[in-house]
Design a binder for these strands. Structure first.
Lengths: 140, 140
DNA sequence: ATAGCTGCAAATGCTTTGCAAGGCC
DNA sequence: GGCCTTGCAAAGCATTTGCAGCTAT
């Protein structure tokens, strides 16, 4: 039990320091929520609420800062699915998404389950950065 | 000259009335900007600015109302490419986009220039509504 | 010691809303 | 006439920013 906890926390600390991020209480706790267990999709507001529900005290500004720092450090990936809020994905590998426009739920689609071919050349003077496939779904 | 103008305006009026939209000055003028000429990608702010530059007086609230009304009527399509502003596309057919994340320019990719295959079934209880491919590009 | 973080409150940017006045059918 | 639209100002959200005080290294 204690062994597991220690290992998990050490692992998280390594994750942060390896990316040059200082170990602050807030970052460690948010990392604990994000990088323990399965892949997750969160918004700033969601993460703040979840933290609060676990007795973690963080300001919303810090949640935003942390999400951006983690993204810059390559620990998270931004996803653009609706124009209201910004989503962050703990799965940083190339992959795509189902987006339930009613419940606002995001689900991963493994990269190898989607084949995309773009036959048109990108606009003059630009290079392709990322291809995002969002499959919008609604309750049947 | 007059013939062309008349025909264009009549055509626009038909477009609106056919969709059950009342002919107000603002709707006709905005429709004139949107549906005359090539396909376009606009945000509310852009359309408002463009209207202003042509001496068309419309409030921003009305621009938003109109964009939504036109969308509901099937004359426009919403596009989600960034989480800051909402884009509207006069091309309502199925197709995809290049999005220049630096200049915020949107370019169409004809549907038949993109092949997408999703091998994963949509989440339990949902059906696919739309598949959106956004190719993010940056200046070389 | 000091560069970097945090938290608060205020500011920002996009979008929506409430409501009175005006316009279309 | 009656219902729909418009315009304004205010409100609403998500997000960012300025800054004073704190903290990791």
């Amino acid at each position: 039990m204690w062994g597991v906890m220690r290992r998990t926390n050490d692992h998280l600390d390594d994750l942060l320091t390896a990316r040059g991020l200082r170990l602050t209480r807030q970052r460690r706790q948010l990392a604990g929520l994000l990088f323990t267990g399965n892949d997750r999709h969160v918004t700033a507001e969601m993460l703040k609420r979840e933290a609060a529900s676990q007795g973690i005290r963080v300001s919303l500004a810090t949640v935003y800062n942390t999400l951006h720092n983690f993204t810059r450090a390559g620990l998270l990936r931004r996803i653009n699915v609706d124009s209201v809020r910004t989503w962050f994905d703990t799965n940083t590998t190339v992959h795509h998404h189902f987006f339930n426009t009613r419940s606002l739920e995001l689900t991963d689609i493994p990269q190898d389950h989607v084949s995309v071919d773009v036959l048109t050349a990108p606009p003059e003077g630009t290079t392709i950065d990322q291809v995002a496939v969002v499959v919008r779904v609604t309750p049947r």
